[in-house]
Design a protein around this nucleic acid. Structure first.
Lengths: 359, 359
DNA sequence: CGCTGATGGTAACGCGGTTTAGTTGAATCG
DNA sequence: CGATTCAACTAAACCGCGTTACCATCAGCG
């Protein structure tokens, strides 16, 4: 291919004015025609649409946002230190699902990572003031979370993923009635029961739990659920150790649990990265899985079934989860009422890493 | 907390008009004051800034985009099937780095996933026509990639990550001079040399390569580099098998390589997911690592050093990589000239998965 | 004292859409 | 046949910002 000498005509994005001129009508007529509003004849409408198509016209999102009050975008913020997401595949899958829901509606996704929830609230305020997004998807709810309050005050629609207490819970925060917050909550308690029953059925009576970050709502719920289940079943003991979700602290927690005078015979790990770390620590100590210790990962990903032994894991389709959340947000943006809905209980896929405890 | 009866006054985002009224000046004066332009006295400027601060004013991104021609956002598209990103941590890290560069400049990141590069080009056209982004970051360049051309025609500034041929290469596509494309290219050839020399030094003469997707430019480069290195060093053989980057195909490729009449004594895997898969297949066949076979992962992540044996891996800081790319894009948006720059050679971190070949 | 030039500010316009209020021309009706 | 009504379309205002042109005031100066 030879050097291209004559640059193509300066590329200017076509505007409604161009379409109007070309079609021989006013810009208002173009607007009516393209938005399926009454005010133009069918023949004109068709002509305008044809011209717009030919010119490759697309509404300027900025102009539309300015007059239409809709930014055509939703936001998502991740408030975790980058290193704590090392090998977690959950979020990429989640985002992938969110996309899939958003794309057909031509909604863009604005994504940002920040250090903490304070910064996240700041960012929400900024996005709101800038009119950058129409709504947001909130992840990783905390036990005492300032975000719902912030969003409620701003009147920014949001879907909180895995958040808040079960509806009707006395702990559920009271928010201004204006709040347009939907909530998709995961039944952590039910999921924990699933795991504990599986382990109990295999004969385990001493369970260690490598949990997530203390401030996270789901961490708190899981810890409480484990304790409740332990009481109910009369387990010898069930200990939760909190971490920051990294392999490092996962390994540390595993060492600590293994070093107890009466070590657990089964480990529940709140993500797959820590599950792998736990397996690794077990190997270090010469413990065979599942002969000496069983391991369950609360989150599935390729490594869980690529590794040997394959890890028993709680399987939830993160992309479908994200898709549902985005759909909820769109419903909210369409004027729908806020809803509380529960995500289906994940499935516990039993693989090679769980078995009967040593005699 | 009791039910909140009296909703706070309807939250309306403050505009320049509000600031102007409050400060007792015209909106133009506010504009001058807030954008550090001459035309107002220092005292007025300070007063306006104080008022704006107090009201929490932020420029409407839409309005600014409409008049200023700048969307205040950059885009990034990922054209891979979602399942091929299963456990890869590279992209999240990359995005994290991009963020970090963008945030101080108040640039938002618009993120989207699509099925293929055709759809990606479509999306670029849409984003351009909508005026949604000021520039984009392009990842996963292909051997015959329509994207640079598309972007060049649109005049949309872009940074291509790991892309194009080395500057001056005859294969480098000719683009319109208007093109505002920078390029951060990774020295795949140098990196491959690093790995091959490491393995050669250990005594390996038969190397298997579990490569990525054939259409990807870096896959092609790595395959070619391996072949060149093999010729140079006089290796017995060096075979590349292409995949789709998934654990499944990685495992399949590993099986195929192990089943060869004269199987390789070392495996180079183009990402960590396939490296883990290869390790797994080796275990299946009773092959000990690194005694019977050595494994190198072309990408590091937590699992590489959590697993046992720890995987020898090529370490590049994906977040720093992303940060540099974003910085380049910002420079381009500031009117800087397009640049070709090379990413520093990654480091090969030798861990437990590589050793001398069996006698 | 009138002219000049700088200073500090305002009014008006454009960006690209949407929306409301008119303005036509033709058909309908008394 | 003139008045009424409606469909089809246009003109103009608006969204919130940046920007340019313009205008008042005042100091300096011949």
């Amino acid at each position: 291919m030879s050097e291209i000498e004559s640059d193509a005509p300066p590329p200017r994005r076509p505007t409604m004015k161009d379409v109007a001129r070309e079609a021989g009508v006013s810009t208002s007529a173009v607007s009516f025609a393209l938005n399926n509003r009454p005010g133009v004849s069918d023949s004109t409408r068709r002509r305008v649409i044809r011209v717009a198509d030919r010119l490759g016209w697309r509404p300027s999102s900025a102009a539309r946002a300015l007059s239409g009050e809709s930014a055509g975008a939703v936001g998502m913020v991740l408030a975790r230190p980058a290193d704590s997401l090392g090998g977690e595949s959950f979020f990429l899958q989640l985002v992938s699902g969110i996309q899939a829901s958003l794309a057909p509606r031509d909604q863009a996704l604005v994504f940002q990572m920040v250090d903490d929830v304070q910064a996240e609230c700041e960012l929400y305020r900024r996005w709101w003031a800038e009119g950058r997004v129409d709504g947001v998807i909130v992840v990783d709810p905390r036990v005492s979370d300032p975000r719902p309050e912030t969003l409620a005050v701003l009147g920014l629609p949001a879907v909180i993923i895995g958040g808040m207490e079960a509806p009707g819970s006395p702990d559920a925060p009271q928010l201004p009635r204006r709040a347009r917050l939907s909530n998709i909550w995961a039944d952590d308690s039910g999921a924990m029961d699933l795991i504990v029953r599986h382990l109990y059925g295999l004969g385990h009576r001493r369970i260690g739990h490598i949990a997530g970050t203390p401030g996270f709502a789901h961490t708190a719920r899981r810890i409480a659920s484990l304790r409740a289940a332990a009481r109910r079943l009369g387990l010898e003991h069930a200990v939760s150790v909190t971490t920051d979700f990294t392999d490092r602290q996962g390994a540390k927690a595993a060492r600590r649990l293994f070093s107890a005078p009466v070590p657990p015979t089964a480990l529940i790990c709140d993500n797959e990265v820590m599950a792998v770390a736990a397996v690794s620590v077990a190997a270090e100590r010469g413990l065979l899985i599942p002969r000496d210790v069983s391991v369950v990962s609360w989150e599935d990903s390729v490594i869980c079934h690529t590794l040997h032994p394959q890890l028993t894991a709680l399987v939830r389709k993160a992309d479908e989860f994200g898709g549902r959340a985005a759909a909820q947000l769109l419903a909210l943006l369409d004027g729908g009422a806020p809803r509380q809905l529960q995500d289906p209980l994940p499935r516990l896929e039993s693989r090679e890493s769980t078995g009967a405890p040593p005699a």
